[in-house]
Nucleic acid binder design. Structure first.
Lengths: 255, 255
DNA sequence: ACCGCCGTTCCGACTGGCGGAACAGGCGGA
DNA sequence: TCCGCCTGTTCCGCCAGTCGGAACGGCGGT
């Protein structure tokens, strides 16, 4: 195994298990974990008991399933607070969310994906929790907003790599269509997601830039339910405010 | 090594490194990490590059220090959201914090320590971020509130185990004094922290119970700066409300 | 030029991880 | 009730991955 040099494969495998719990907290059986990460039940058992021993995972006494333990929760909470990044953008996002009753996500661009690092949720989108912690770019407002401002050469390479998987029947699955849309995003200064990731969910997203390098580093998005706003209303009411917020965040966060 | 059975020591060591970053995000050098977790530089290097490879850690290009990567941040954010626990108590805590401009912490009791799993901070205690994700019990309002309601036999064993380390000159370091104070806590229904963990920081804490088993599972605390309220004022204004909130949380959270 | 500390790589010794197989317990269907 | 299936768990021999000392190269000090 391992074309890569000098990495700890045990640790890497172990992290795969943590990842699993980052996506769904439904709880897993040992065999399920073993199957999903592709290791033997024996190894899975060893890893899982290690996590349990240290309080990162715990077994739900009722269902017998493995779930996240308080230690992970506390560690996660602490990491988020420790993070200068989150600390800086939080007041801006919270204030914006509170003022207009908006659902706001902040994502960072990395590894051909967008990582959700802060979310401020509103009541009406509480149902849409299905966003996992890392997501593909092409069906998110935040993802398209970020993509649109990647420098042309890197973008071309990225486009070649991406698999445009359909999440709904509105998801863009054609490279040419996506490229055209990115052009539009550059003109408007923000991107739209019109039920492309989840039926009933619309969003607009604007890019975040590093003031040091000038490169795009992520995006911020406003989300809404189609029951609350139509796409047109949502854009008309909030697009200006979104772009303004993105600028404010870019100014504060030094990346 | 390993009196314990069947655990993955590589993973355990690797997790120790993550822990480090949960406590301080100042950033570490490789040698520092190796020294702190007590492994060779070679091993530390292997673990750290593994983390980096996967995006959990990253090197700050300016300082050269290892810091948390976006992946960890995103994973942490996701875990917090996935957690039913946090999801249930969040609206209650947020509403309470907003209504009175309070700083509120929620902690879970485990392994002779209190794990901070949710925090809602206010402006005036922003300075007090030094609370790490797991903390000893005896110098926190939340810790003393939880301790006071542990069943007598378990409490006796716990008291014998605890080392009453002083954090300030007001920290209780004597077992008899602590026991007397716990009696007072049981009478009042809440605990006080009068600059016992940090100069200038006061708090009151109330226990959370499992309605299923009846046992204490954690505590919730209100924090304030001495510049804002005196201990007496703080208690008079908020103690009733605190106890009420603790009951509400206990009712909602099924543990 | 020196020194000290940084991260990184190479190496041989060895230990801890590996997975197949076998065991125990719980649950549901026949 | 018995049987099959799936759960988690333990045992074991083999091999691979981890270990730490030592040595290398790069950078920023005095």
């Amino acid at each position: 195994m391992s074309g890569k040099a000098n990495i700890s494969e045990s640790l890497a495998k172990g992290l795969l298990i943590l990842d699993l719990f980052g996506i769904e907290d439904a709880g897993f059986t040992l065999s399920e974990i073993a199957a999903r990460v592709g290791i033997s039940k024996t190894s899975a058992h060893r890893y899982v008991t290690t996590y349990c021993e240290q309080g990162y995972l715990a077994r739900d006494p009722r269902s017998g399933l493995y779930r996240l333990g308080v230690r992970t929760l506390a560690l996660a909470q602490s990491m988020i607070e420790q993070s200068e990044l989150v600390r800086l953008l939080r007041p801006l996002v919270d204030e914006a969310a509170a003022r207009h009753g908006l659902h706001i996500d902040v994502g960072i661009l990395a590894n051909d994906a967008i990582y959700l690092i802060y979310r401020r949720d509103s009541v009406d989108t509480h149902a849409f929790r299905s966003f996992s912690y890392a997501s593909a770019l092409h069906y998110l407002a935040a993802g398209k907003a970020a993509m649109a401002f990647i420098e042309p050469r890197a973008l071309a390479e990225l486009m070649a790599r991406l698999e445009l998987v359909a999440k709904t029947d509105r998801t863009i699955t054609d490279t040419a269509v996506l490229e055209a849309e990115l052009g539009q995003v550059r003109e408007l200064g923000y991107a739209r997601n019109n039920e492309e990731s989840l039926p009933g969910l619309i969003a607009i997203g604007a890019p975040l830039f590093s003031l040091r390098t000038g490169a795009v580093v992520g995006a911020v998005s406003f989300d809404s339910s189609t029951a609350t706003y139509s796409m047109q209303e949502f854009e008309r009411l909030f697009a200006g405010y979104l772009v303004e917020l993105a600028k404010k965040i870019s100014a504060v966060v030094s990346l």
